[in-house]
Design a protein around this nucleic acid. Structure first.
Lengths: 191, 191
DNA sequence: GTTACAAGCAAGCGATCGCTTGCTTGTAAA
DNA sequence: TTTACAAGCAAGCGATCGCTTGCTTGTAAC
């Protein structure tokens, strides 16, 4: 990342507020106050409020993509890829809760052009997951379950993490992925 | 529901806009325009913008609770209860997409008192699910999988439906519940 | 025919919104 | 010592926010 330290600090501050109160529920004056400057001074660093949103959301998209891509393109067996992929997704969410929530929650507040850019990256991420699962079915490692709804189930579980995860006293991303994988791989029914 | 027809129509209109643009992203003038009156005239029917939000969110909470409660308190076997419960949840989301999205998305914009009221109903709903799952484990119908994370997985899948469900050409709530249940009960791993 | 009231209009209130402008200041290179 | 510039302040712009007020109108009961 070529983003300077103070710029990143500003994104963190804005992300924290957007995450807590939503993009439209956060004012430029609140962001400036959290930064310790006046609202007008913010415009030395940004050109608009939407700029802040876009950078946060775009960084979030990049984090998800760069975490999953090497796993899908790698050589592990599908079961390992599935577990690693879910753990990677959960790690992105839990280690950047604010940015992840803004990415998942507020990206629709972007204008048409920038929202389309993010939509593209979301589609790309979804396609990576489809590839991962398709490989598992093709190699006979997975059976049953419609691939489409399996993908939806996995991403639902991964995305919803930001709604309930508390940073203290909780399982690690890998631990959480293990819990969910146990259910997804083996099911819960007795025979 | 004792809500008059025209009041409910207003909630529907507001719910649609809140769902699309968020609570803070929707203005009282937009709601009035969608209703075909001037913004000031809205206050013949409501006492504040937050009133609209609260009614929508509170109705949403009631819909989820009243759908799940008879299932949990009923006499079906746990496996049937689980499938019915998930189908009921998905039916609430898919038949009232706007209200469900506002309930899940924008309820935190409520003031302290009313947000606490909704939090209570959310906790109650979650407890119903815990009861349902606990019965399955107690009767030996479910095995493996931490009950806590099983509940989180189920609610994640059910809640995230509003993010991707399209009303046309999609499976019914029961069909979707079948798809997800096949994965959750039997898993996807080959042996 | 009168009364009563729900429903809406027209106008605009004070507050706050995102953002701009003109100016000052601290700092570091030349 | 001078120069240059990034960073921030002070003030306030026009627009829009949620909401209020005083008034009109359609309708239905008596």
């Amino acid at each position: 990342m070529t983003t300077s330290k103070s710029k990143q600090e500003l994104y963190d501050i804005a992300g924290k507020l957007f995450s807590k109160k939503g993009y439209h529920g956060t004012t430029i004056r609140e962001i400036a106050e959290a930064r310790g400057i006046l609202s007008g001074s913010l415009y030395t660093h940004i050109s608009s409020k939407e700029d802040l949103l876009f950078h946060i959301v775009d960084d979030g998209a990049a984090a998800f993509l760069s975490a999953l891509e090497p796993i899908v393109r790698g050589q592990d067996d599908p079961k390992t890829k599935l577990k690693s992929g879910l753990a990677a997704h959960i790690r992105v969410v839990t280690t950047q809760m604010d940015a992840a929530k803004v990415f998942l929650h507020d990206w629709t507040a972007l204008g048409d052009v920038r929202r389309a850019q993010i939509q593209e990256k979301r589609d790309k991420y979804e396609a990576l997951w489809s590839d991962l699962l398709a490989e598992g079915y093709a190699k006979g490692v997975f059976r049953g379950g419609d691939p489409k709804y399996l993908r939806i189930l996995i991403l639902s579980v991964g995305n919803w993490v930001y709604e309930w995860y508390k940073t203290s006293g909780e399982l690690t991303p890998e631990g959480l992925a293990d819990e969910f994988m146990a259910i997804i791989l083996n099911g819960i029914a007795t025979f």
